[in-house]
């Protein structure tokens, strides 16, 4: 059984108002050095059999990410 991590992030050119709101709130907690926040999603997928990276890649392309607005990366968990 392999555990694959799929990270999905909004494309750089897509406005991320949630990340911006978080970035604006952090200084009030003393995090003065934070200059930018982007918010994405992380999926932990367990794959039994086959090529786990290939399975996760195809799942990400088909459903987990929307290629119009999001990029994704796939890696086996260490």
């Amino acid at each position: 059984m392999a555990r694959v991590i799929v990270d999905v992030m909004p494309k750089p050119e897509i406005l991320d108002p949630q990340g911006q709101a978080i970035a604006r709130a952090l200084p009030s907690l003393g995090f003065d050095n934070v200059t930018s926040v982007r918010q994405g999603k992380r999926f932990e997928i367990e794959v039994d059999g086959g090529d786990p990276l290939d399975v996760a890649n195809r799942a990400a392309e088909a459903m987990l990410a929307n290629p119009v607005i999001e990029d994704f990366t796939v890696r086996i968990e260490d």
Binding site: P10, I14, L15, P17, Q18, A21, N66, V68, I69
Partner: peptide, 17 residues
């Protein structure tokens, strides 16, 4: 319809949240 690719583009969180 956008997710099904019957129409292009996508709908994301309102700019003002």
């Amino acid at each position: 319809l956008c997710e099904a690719h019957l129409l292009p583009g996508a709908l994301v969180r309102n700019a003002g949240l």
